[in-house]
Simulated assay, not measured.
Amino acid sequence: MLTENPTAVPATLATRHLCTAEFEVGGGIIGIGASPFGDQRLGYISGGRFFGPRINGIILPGGGNWSRSGRLGDEASVGTFDARAVWQTGDGDLIYLSYTGRSIIPDDVRATFSDPAVPDADPSRYYLRIAPVFETASAKYGWLNGILAVGVGERTDFGVRHVIHEVM
């Protein structure tokens, strides 16, 4: 049996900025409803853009986020993501992106999300994190096939913005 060495220093986790992705969610969120497995919703990706030091382009329409939510205690909801999208780089290469993730949204913040007259809540008031992976046939962007990334998200008036970092 393996035991932990109490004097060992754990490895650090380093990241570097990969890009910022702005997903447009046209038509809003489609509420599928609460089943015994949670409240299922779908957000259709109608477009968007991504930009960073090594990769830039547009987010093609047709992807989506199938999210499921439940309760985390008495004052917040918790959610999971199952999202897929296709990105097209500025030079025409295609990148398939899929991600999972978690959200924790206090009830008072969620109430502001459903009222278009109320400005978006400060992102520091809720938790929205993703773990994207990439797949491409592009020789130029093939390095994406070997990385894991993490992102911090925020709700916007057009959908969602994720600041994505490559895990080194």
Rank of each mutant, 00 (worst) to 15 (best):
5 N>S: 11
7 T>H: 09
9 V>E: 09
9 V>R: 09
11 A>W: 01
12 T>L: 06
12 T>V: 15
13 L>A: 10
14 A>Q: 11
14 A>K: 10
15 T>H: 09
16 R>C: 12
17 H>M: 14
18 L>P: 04
18 L>G: 05
19 C>K: 05
20 T>E: 05
23 F>L: 15
23 F>S: 05
25 V>W: 05
26 G>R: 07
27 G>D: 14
27 G>I: 09
31 G>P: 13
31 G>W: 11
31 G>T: 11
32 I>W: 12
33 G>W: 04
33 G>Y: 08
33 G>N: 02
34 A>W: 08
34 A>P: 04
35 S>T: 14
35 S>A: 05
36 P>I: 12
36 P>L: 06
36 P>Q: 12
37 F>W: 06
39 D>N: 15
42 L>D: 15
42 L>S: 11
43 G>L: 13
47 G>D: 11
48 G>L: 07
51 F>S: 15
52 G>L: 08
52 G>W: 02
57 G>E: 00
58 I>Y: 14
60 L>I: 14
61 P>N: 13
62 G>F: 01
62 G>V: 06
64 G>R: 09
66 W>Y: 14
67 S>W: 00
68 R>I: 13
70 G>A: 09
71 R>G: 14
73 G>Y: 12
74 D>L: 15
74 D>F: 04
75 E>F: 13
76 A>K: 08
77 S>R: 04
77 S>I: 12
78 V>D: 01
80 T>K: 08
80 T>Q: 06
83 A>N: 04
83 A>T: 06
84 R>Y: 13
85 A>G: 00
85 A>P: 02
86 V>G: 00
86 V>A: 01
87 W>C: 04
88 Q>Y: 06
88 Q>R: 14
91 D>V: 07
92 G>C: 04
92 G>L: 06
93 D>S: 07
93 D>R: 03
94 L>P: 02
95 I>G: 00
95 I>F: 02
95 I>Q: 00
97 L>F: 03
97 L>T: 14
100 T>R: 12
100 T>E: 10
101 G>M: 04
101 G>E: 06
103 S>M: 07
105 I>F: 08
105 I>A: 05
105 I>R: 03
105 I>P: 02
106 P>S: 03
106 P>F: 05
107 D>E: 13
108 D>T: 10
108 D>E: 09
109 V>L: 02
112 T>S: 09
113 F>A: 15
115 D>K: 07
115 D>F: 03
118 V>Y: 03
119 P>H: 00
120 D>L: 08
125 R>N: 05
126 Y>G: 03
126 Y>A: 03
127 Y>C: 01
127 Y>G: 03
128 L>Y: 15
129 R>H: 12
130 I>D: 01
130 I>R: 04
130 I>V: 15
131 A>Q: 13
131 A>Y: 08
133 V>G: 06
135 E>V: 11
135 E>K: 10
139 A>M: 01
140 K>M: 00
140 K>A: 02
141 Y>L: 02
142 G>D: 00
146 G>C: 11
147 I>K: 14
152 V>A: 11
152 V>Q: 09
152 V>N: 08
153 G>W: 07
155 R>G: 01
156 T>N: 07
157 D>C: 13
158 F>A: 10
159 G>I: 12
159 G>Y: 15
159 G>L: 06
161 R>N: 07
162 H>S: 08
162 H>P: 08
163 V>P: 07
164 I>Y: 07
164 I>L: 14
165 H>S: 10
165 H>K: 10
168 M>F: 12
168 M>C: 13
